[in-house]
């Protein structure tokens, strides 16, 4: 009987300590709002928002320390989505949206210094020291972070070629004139 009680008590103590330890050791870092914001950001990791990547910008937004119109790659669509999520007023983007591009390394000029590899936030450049480097187009986010570090200036940004898979029907040019009073009953709901 005593043995049993002791054994149970020992087990209870053991698990208690284990739980206490894991609560500290494996604490889940993060903030659900920041996660939601991060899910909306384009993940280009370009730093044009003034933060060292998308996640830090998301955290700043979550704390309410930032404007919602800082992300250039996200553009107007992102401003609207953020305004929706955070219940803020949409703010105009002050700079024009960029043409989607990917980096291109001029094979003749690359000296294989690996600096672009170090700069690329998404490991979209392959190559080893003193070997020719190349960009994996499908992975490049067009952040331009690799352009500046290149000592021989052999990286250029090239606009993504329009192809059939990527093509979209344009917004109709023949716009009817609609007065606002005729708008559908969308806000009645």
């Amino acid at each position: 009987m005593l043995v049993a009680i002791l054994a149970i008590a020992a087990l209870a103590a053991f698990f208690g300590i284990l739980l206490g330890y894991s609560a500290i050791r494996f604490r889940v870092e993060g903030d659900p709002i920041a996660d939601q914001i991060d899910a909306l950001l384009p993940q280009t990791q370009c730093g044009q928002c003034g933060h060292p990547g998308c996640r830090p910008y998301a955290e700043a937004l979550a704390k309410g320390e930032e404007e919602i119109n800082k992300c250039l790659p996200g553009g107007e669509a992102l401003v609207l989505a953020l305004a929706d999520l955070l219940g803020r007023e949409p703010v105009a983007m002050d700079i024009k949206e960029k043409i989607p591009s990917v980096a291109f390394i001029e094979p003749e000029d690359c000296i294989g210094c690996t600096r672009c590899i170090q700069a690329c936030p998404v490991d979209a450049i392959i190559g080893a020291a003193k070997q020719l480097h190349a960009v994996i187009n499908s992975e490049c986010t067009g952040c331009e972070l690799c352009v500046e570090p290149c000592p021989v200036a052999c990286i250029q940004m090239r606009p993504i070629q329009e192809d059939i898979q990527r093509w979209r029907w344009p917004y109709p040019a023949r716009q009817p004139v609609e007065s606002d009073s005729a708008a559908p009953l969308r806000d009645a709901a």
Partner: peptide
């Protein structure tokens, strides 16, 4: 329709970029 498809594609791409980052 095509705008929605394009947006979904972009979303997949940014998921991928997030994972790689």
């Amino acid at each position: 329709k095509t705008e929605i498809w394009a947006r979904e594609q972009e979303k997949r791409k940014s998921e991928q970029a997030r994972a790689r980052h």
